[in-house]
């Protein structure tokens, strides 16, 4: 059976697409799935940095598509998990060096071999976005509780619907519960009322994210992190487990559940 191809997108830059890809990919791989991550942000690649695999890059996505290497040669295996690998983007090329058709073919080939193909989409809605969503059957739209990010997410959801992507789920990143309580930040309910797509999970604002990005080790390896727990919850839901959304809050029950999973 063919695996799932999931694109992680947002419209606005800097809302946490790459972090989400790295963490969901790592968690799904920890759950004994075979996972490949594709960075399609050609010219501005950074999934390799977040995964800590920057110094191992020889071939990249454009090389595979132009036939300069086999796709196995461009896949870089993760340092900890042997069933997780990534295809880096080319840093010295441009977004229009690949086409939607080529991307679609690559995704369907990879879905034959892997359980999950997770695509990191570039910011914006131009050619890079079109390439990234071309081969995907599921889209995860990442937004932060800011009006500008939500506006862009709304636009992107409209474009995904127009491109006939069937499953669209929302991830709210960097939610600060204290600010929501004071009424200084949009709440989860407000965002869902506006965007009207199913919620996959909420990631609380956390300093751990910056630390893990700089170290090049995905957050989910750190068991004490609340943000990491949120990503684990989302990955579980993607994998078909029924985990209540508020289990991410880090309550006693949530912590016990986490102990049981890992």
């Amino acid at each position: 059976m063919a695996g799932r191809t999931i694109v992680v997108t947002s419209g606005k830059g800097g809302v946490g697409k790459t972090t989400t890809v790295a963490n969901l990919g790592t968690t799904l791989a920890k759950k004994k799935n075979s996972v490949v991550l594709i960075d399609t942000d050609i010219g501005l690649r950074n999934l390799d940095v977040v995964m800590g695999l920057e110094n191992r890059i020889v071939y990249n996505l454009v090389d595979i598509i132009e036939g300069k290497c086999r796709k196995e040669q461009a896949m870089i295996r993760d340092r900890k998990l042997s069933n997780l690998c990534m295809i880096p983007a080319a840093q010295t090329r441009e977004k229009n060096s690949i086409t939607e058709e080529q991307m679609k073919e690559l995704c369907s080939n990879l879905a034959e071999e892997f359980d999950y193909v997770i695509i990191d989409c570039p910011a914006g809605i131009e050619q890079g976005f079109k390439n990234a969503i071309a081969g995907a059957d599921t889209a995860l739209v990442v937004t932060t509780p800011e009006v500008s990010a939500i506006r862009d997410a709304d636009r992107v959801i409209g474009l995904l619907e127009a491109a006939l992507v069937r499953n669209i789920n929302l991830i709210i990143n960097r939610l600060n519960a204290r600010m929501v309580k004071k009424g200084d930040m949009m709440s989860t309910e407000d965002i869902i009322a506006l965007l009207s797509v199913p919620l996959l999970g909420v990631v609380p604002e956390s300093e751990d994210v910056v630390v893990s990005t700089n170290r090049g080790v995905p957050l989910v390896h750190d068991r004490s992190s609340k943000a990491g727990a949120a990503f684990r919850g989302m990955a579980g839901r993607l994998d078909g487990e029924s985990i209540p959304l508020d289990g991410d809050a880090g309550g006693l029950l949530g912590r016990m559940k986490r102990l049981i999973w890992n």
């Binding site: 636009r155 959801i157 409209g158 474009l159």
Partner: peptide, 8 residues
């Protein structure tokens, strides 16, 4: 017959 999102 559906929600008009940003950009429509």
């Amino acid at each position: 017959r559906n929600t008009c999102r940003s950009g429509v």
